[in-house]
Write a protein that binds this DNA or RNA. Structure first.
Length: 287
DNA sequence: CCCACGACCTGTGGGC
DNA sequence: TGCCCACAGGTCGTGG
């Protein structure tokens, strides 16, 4: 489920455990995730200190006291769990007591302090890589990324420019990480509903005032989701339930057949496949 | 450029 | 209960 709010939540949870710590032990329990892990993966990381844990789009970035940055993408089903040494108190803001799932525990990090961070990923759409920090912005994964939706670089003008002349719906274009980085299926559906814009309307024909609404809606839904600790579904469910309440706030996503939550709207939430992915929307109030 | 579709990989939930 | 299919948060590539 990792879209921007989930990755940001994970970042916030891992940071107190990893930042400033040296990795005492690293274990790759299989040679590949979505892509092969670099040959020197374990060697490069063992003994490295994580200076800072950052996020760009849906990527987690561990800045190291070495030439490279550890880049991690959670794909569809990637998640992290932290285990502390027996008897120690839990630092706040993260999830513990995982259901044992040794089959999908693919990468282990152990810090000097003894915390163990395990990466689980049943579907293995996630990946990890080492990317040279000095030339980071030139790397193909990052060179073409659009602005962060929570930064000042993202606004209606940016959308207008990106949408100009395009016949695809805004749903499809907002999923394009080159236009804006970090949105996924859930939050695009939610933002379009809040802005009352049809996912199917030709993007180039959406008025400026509607694009203003859309930019505001994107920002609002992401901020609310981050404040709620992201959304917890399926693989991502955490044992102690400490995180991830935003799924209770979905207005359209996975709510086919339920009434439209907009006051006074008689619509019923519909689901339609768009570019092979489910789009949830209200056919009545989203124009 | 647009779109439809399939691929990657595994698990789960719903329908019968 | 059991089986089979549809579908799942994300990308990436192909071909018309």
């Amino acid at each position: 489920m990792p879209e921007l709010p989930e990755v940001e939540t994970v970042r916030g949870g891992l940071a107190p455990v990893l930042e400033g710590q040296r990795l005492a032990r690293v274990e790759a329990r299989r040679p590949d995730l979505r892509f092969p892990l670099p040959d020197n993966f374990v060697q490069e990381l063992t003994g490295a200190r994580i200076l800072k844990l950052e996020r760009r789009a849906k990527y987690l970035l561990a800045r190291l006291d070495r030439e490279d940055t550890l880049v991690m993408h959670l794909g569809m089903s990637g998640r992290f769990e932290i285990a502390r040494p027996a008897g120690e108190a839990r630092p706040g803001n993260f999830h513990y007591a995982p259901t044992p799932d040794p089959k999908h525990a693919h990468v282990l990090f152990e810090t000097e302090a003894g915390d163990r961070v395990t990466y689980y990923d049943p579907r293995r759409f996630g990946y990890m890589a080492l990317v040279n920090t000095a030339t980071f912005d030139l790397h193909p994964w990052f060179a073409g990324l659009g602005p962060e939706p929570l930064s000042q670089a993202f606004d209606a003008a940016r959308l207008q420019h990106a949408f100009a002349g395009r016949k695809q719906g805004p749903k499809t274009l907002l999923l394009d990480q080159r236009i804006v980085a970090g949105l996924g299926n859930i939050y695009v559906c939610e933002a379009l509903h809040r802005a009352r814009i049809s996912p199917f309307r030709a993007a180039g024909r959406i008025s400026r005032s509607r694009l203003e609404r859309l930019a505001v809606a994107v920002r609002a839904v992401l901020l609310e989701a981050i404040a709620a600790g992201g959304s917890t579904l399926r693989d991502y469910a955490q044992a102690d339930g400490a995180l991830g309440y935003f799924q209770h706030s979905f207005r359209v996503y996975d709510r086919e057949g339920r009434p439209c939550p907009h006051a006074g709207c008689p619509g019923v939430i519909a689901r339609r496949l768009q570019a092979g992915r489910s789009t949830f929307y209200c056919p009545v109030c989203q124009k």
